[in-house]
Amino acid sequence: MTATANTKAAVNLPADWRDFFALTKPRVMSLVIFTGLCGLLAAPGTIHPVIGFTAILCIAMGAGGAAALNQWWEADIDAGMKRTAARPLPSGKIKPIDARDFGIGLSSASVVIMGVAVDWLAAAILGFSVIYYAVIYTIWLKPRTPQNIVIGGGAGAFPPMIGWIAVTGDVTIMPVLLFAIIFFWTPPHFWALALFVKTDYAKVGIPMLPVVAGERVTRRQILAYSAFLVPLAVSPWIIGATGAIYGIAALALTLAFFAFSIPVGLRESSGDNDDMKPEKRLFAFSILYLFALFAVLVVDRVAAAQGWIA
């Protein structure tokens, strides 16, 4: 752990179960569950509902466990930022050792249950994704490189891939493309947030791109990633893995995403009085974008299965 001595050490009362639930980052988990479910539903083939439910539960448990380990390691960093200071560890509601054990237990159980009940390849990738987020990203790269968000994006990109593999049992081009879409979506999504909370990151010494390379570089990078997302999001349609419903919707949604990123990418903020509206709009739309893109992927698959489209 970075150093938990600065966080409130004395915990007189036992932690409430809601504090443990908060450790799993439920809002992030909702996106993880949704993309994992979409990967599972969009995959060719069938899966028994009980096994499918178990696969999604394991993805959620793995994400929750990794989030708990992330918060355990970053307790001091979280304590120094307004956005995260009220989390269970920096506010002293949970003992660090309890959070660590909860994270290890939850993620280990998720991998074992996934392997035994669903598929060992899916379990192996789930296990790797937990290690990727909790160790490679949180401990190793986040405090060391301004490209931390690019690398961290990989962790959030695994769920649809795992959901897909839970059905098919093998890695093909489609789950890799789903992985790539979230991977390239993450930097503009998170840097938009980092632009309007950059003071906090600077205070705790996390080398976020806006802090290290400056706003101008970050804005250009947001624009570049958003532009690259346009052909990437449409590629499942181009290679014939999805139908026109997905293709047209993906094109429209990603062009809208790109349109939101243009004012962010080309402008300069006017200092402390800037309300950062374009950045906030891009951040809000980016969440809607991912939900909509994966929802339409499932709609496309259902439409094809029902014979509504050729």
């Binding site: 009362l13 036992p14 179960w17």
Partner: peptide, 21 residues
Amino acid sequence: MMTPEEKAETKKRQKTRNLVV
């Protein structure tokens, strides 16, 4: 030393946690 209120809150939390587990 816990106050009676803290004792009651501790009991309540333990009970809820046991139920959740």
